[in-house]
Amino acid sequence: MNVGKHMNTSLTTVGPDTAFSTLLVKQCNWRTRQIYVVDQGFKLLGIVTTHNLLSRLVPQYLDSTLSKTLPSGDSLFAKHYRESSGLTAKEVMTTDFISLGLDDVIIEAGAIIKDRRFNGLPVLDEQGVLRGDIGRKDILRYITAKVCGLDIG
């Protein structure tokens, strides 16, 4: 089965100059899997994930053990938010993303997501225009309903 038929087309998209604070707010929306950064022609420039944003707010050097020494990390979060507030989407986004074509099969998406632990993959048409995305849940729903024949409501 092709990803084009099972992809999600309700995407969160922004321009490359979108402010860091806007990205945070958009990503906090429970319906947003990841934010797609596109140009005016809707060509995909990069992806902003929750991990991209958290890595700007949680100090890179801080591991789980060292973090236990802190009574509260709020002042560190606040400091790193202040330092990151001048950033825009083009400085935060991941540009070495993997994309799928509309005719690629779902098992390919499943294999990539399993191997690389991505949340979701963008689906582009032949011109590189963003048409949708497919995530872990989409693939699981497809297998459960269409392959296993179970009722998912």
Partner: peptide, 13 residues
């Protein structure tokens, strides 16, 4: 020592 140093510098701004 570097991670501790970075944390302390961060805490002291």
């Amino acid at each position: 020592l570097a991670p501790v140093t970075l944390l302390i510098a961060d805490q002291l701004d």
